[in-house]
């Protein structure tokens, strides 16, 4: 099974700031990590490879320093890393990003499965996975918590729901986005690190993937961030104390006042 894993380099969540002028995330001087959900997607890909054979290609879109997460992916079991990087991609929203990744996937050649994290922890949109599937006209399942069965032709997976899970079977090629419950990612191995040390990351430009200029970057992005703000703290908050039973009766009393 040949698998592509989409990986995003994100600022470390402990250290997030907004640029007050552009209302976007300030990325300079912030430690960058592999998006945590993507670590789980990568782990699932490596496990499927160990089970069924094939290759795992880590794919990222981002500035040149995003090579770091692709090397980390190789140290965790990916066979190669491909970075889609071009100044023309700057300012891409989820729509333009999905388009760009889809064009890159088409350049990479035949594949059986694309795995993505459910969402990135910087934007939290959870749109790029499904967007990429739509661009490529692939069947997809989001929020996968377990791979029940995998073969060369089909997958049966569990989709996490608020009140349980769905069991979904889908033909390959397909796309899945995964939640953290799906597995426990391994740490980068020594041999993987040695391999990553020697690895070359293939870089694809806008021209390499034959992207239409009006479809990428800011020009290809219908989303405009109008304003970003912190919600006002709610002032009328009250904390109850005492035992659970005491707190419940205080709460009941409080609610009665509004009835």
């Amino acid at each position: 099974m040949n698998i592509i894993v989409c990986i995003k380099q994100v600022p470390d969540a402990k250290d997030v700031r907004l640029d007050p002028k552009t209302n976007t995330l300030a990325r300079e001087g912030v430690a960058a990590i592999m998006n945590p959900f993507d670590r789980h997607a990568l782990e699932e890909a490596v496990r499927l490879k160990e089970q069924l054979g094939g290759t795992v290609t880590a794919l990222s879109m981002g500035p040149p320093q995003a090579k770091e997460v692709l090397l980390e992916a190789i140290s965790c079991g990916a066979d190669e890393g491909v970075l889609v990087s071009d100044r023309a991609f700057a300012g891409a929203d989820t729509w333009a990003t999905s388009y760009t990744l889809a064009k890159a996937v088409q350049v990479l050649g035949a594949f059986d499965l694309i795995l993505c994290g459910k969402q990135a922890i910087d934007g939290d949109t959870a749109q790029v996975g499904p967007g990429l599937a739509a661009q490529l006209k692939l069947p997809y399942v989001t929020c996968v918590q377990k791979t029940r069965e995998a073969s060369a032709a089909m997958l049966r997976v569990e989709r996490m729901m608020d009140d349980g899970y769905d069991v979904v079977q889908l033909p390959l090629p397909a796309l899945l986005t995964v939640v953290k419950d799906i597995n426990e990612p391994r740490v980068p191995s020594l041999k993987g690190k040695m391999k990553a040390k020697k690895a070359e990351i293939r870089v694809l430009s806008a021209a390499d993937i034959k992207a239409e200029p009006q479809c990428i970057g800011l020009a290809g992005s219908p989303t405009k961030v109008a304003r970003v703000f912190s919600p006002e703290p709610r002032s009328n908050r009250r904390m109850f104390s005492g035992t659970a039973a005491e707190q419940v009766s205080q709460l009941v009393e409080e609610i009665r006042g509004y009835l």
């Binding site: 391994r186 740490v187 980068p188 191995s189 020594l190 041999k191 993987g192």
Partner: peptide, 11 residues
């Protein structure tokens, strides 16, 4: 087994 996966036994 986690330690093995990370190749530390090879050391």
């Amino acid at each position: 087994r986690d330690i093995a996966k990370a190749d530390l036994f090879a050391v």
